[in-house]
Amino acid sequence: MIRVENLTKAFGPKLAVNNVSFTVERGEVLGFLGPNGAGKSTTMRMVTGFIPPTSGKITVGGHDMLENPLPAKRLLGYLPENAPGYADMTVHGFLSFAAELRGLRGAARKRAIDRVVEHCLLENVLYQTIDTLSKGYKHRTCLAQSLIHDPDILIMDEPTDGLDPNQKHDVRNLIKRMGENKAIIFSTHILEEVEAVCSRVIIIDRGRIVANGTPKELKARSPEGRLEDVFRAITLPDTVKAH
């Protein structure tokens, strides 16, 4: 459903993403792993059509994201990093707005809102403005926005960042459940999370893919069978200078 070919993004002289290619099919949950600043967010922003790549090709559900972005964007749900939301809107107003931009009107819109409110447990704060929400609720509101049109493809940038252990657990379960009939990409730096929900892992370091496989395959690379050892062995801390 998602096909990324030779994707490169340069910010000035710096290559944030360097010749990255991968595919994600329906029923797959792809975990993006990598140190901070490795290029995970930049890659996701390109796949969702927010920023244009310097070179490369992105196809979403058969539609070219650069040539024909609107049909491609219709298939996507996106949860950006830090779960942004319009501070002065109520949760209901915000979801309504998202639904409208997704082409849902009238009864269909109402059904869609009811569904995501139930999924994301937002009943209690439905008429509160977003700036008064706790981090967990704010996060779930943005997640609800990404699910409002029941997309085939879901892209989530650090969906569990800043949540408490219960919330993390809920979000992981949700991802796992949805992964059965959607194509999902999510980024994280929590290794246990990857083992818990991903069917495949890509490790990115300094804009390049340094590993791509199932969690099991990756773990097998370490003598102790621990993902953390593999991660530490193939990625460099950001204090080390690249050559």
């Binding site: 059509g49 964007k73 931009l101 926005q145």
Partner: peptide, 14 residues
């Protein structure tokens, strides 16, 4: 500032 631009412009909106 809010980062909502990323939401808005990844919606099917030009």
């Amino acid at each position: 500032r809010l980062g909502t631009m990323e939401l808005l412009l990844t919606m099917p909106v030009t």
